[in-house]
Amino acid sequence: MSDRSKKLGPRVTVSVTPGDYDTLNALAEKDDVSVSWVVRRAIQEYLRRHQRPTRAARRPALDQQTAAPART
């Protein structure tokens, strides 16, 4: 296993439209980074937005709505 694959982990291959690739390439050039870096950052942001919130991070009102009703 190469040092690079140890650092970054598994490799994923995706196909994008020519227009999306041009946009990714323009963003990468603007920030002087690679297209791969832009894609990894986009994946990180997507995963962060779609992770289920932890119980501590939830609003109390949500906890009350989802809690089981109190028994009397």
Rank of each mutant, 00 (worst) to 15 (best):
V35W: 00
H50G: 13
D20N: 05
T66I: 12
R52Q: 11
D32Q: 10
Q65W: 13
Q44F: 02
P18F: 01
S34C: 03
V14Q: 13
K7E: 09
I43P: 01
A68V: 08
Y46W: 14
L8Y: 11
V14P: 03
R59E: 12
W37L: 07
P69G: 03
R58E: 14
V12H: 13
R55W: 05
V16P: 00
D63P: 03
D22H: 03
I43T: 12
R52V: 15
A67N: 12
D22R: 08
H50M: 09
R59H: 12
N25C: 03
A67F: 04
A42N: 05
T72V: 12
T54F: 06
A67K: 09
Y21D: 11
K7A: 15
P10K: 14
S34K: 03
Y21E: 06
R59G: 12
A70C: 11
Y21A: 01
S36T: 15
D20I: 08
S36A: 15
R55A: 07
K6Y: 07
P69K: 06
D32L: 05
T13I: 15
T23G: 01
A26H: 08
Q64G: 04
R71S: 08
P10N: 14
S36P: 06
R40Y: 01
A26K: 06
L8H: 15
D32K: 10
S2A: 05
L24H: 00
N25V: 00
L8W: 12
G19F: 03
A56V: 08
S15R: 14
G9I: 07
A26L: 08
G9E: 01
A68S: 14
T54M: 11
E45T: 05
V38G: 00
S2D: 06
K6M: 14
Q51F: 02
T13P: 02
N25Q: 07
T66A: 08
L8M: 12
P60I: 03
T23F: 07
V39Y: 04
P60C: 01
Q64F: 07
L62H: 06
L27G: 04
A28Q: 00
I43S: 11
E29F: 02
A57P: 04
R58G: 00
D31A: 08
T13V: 13
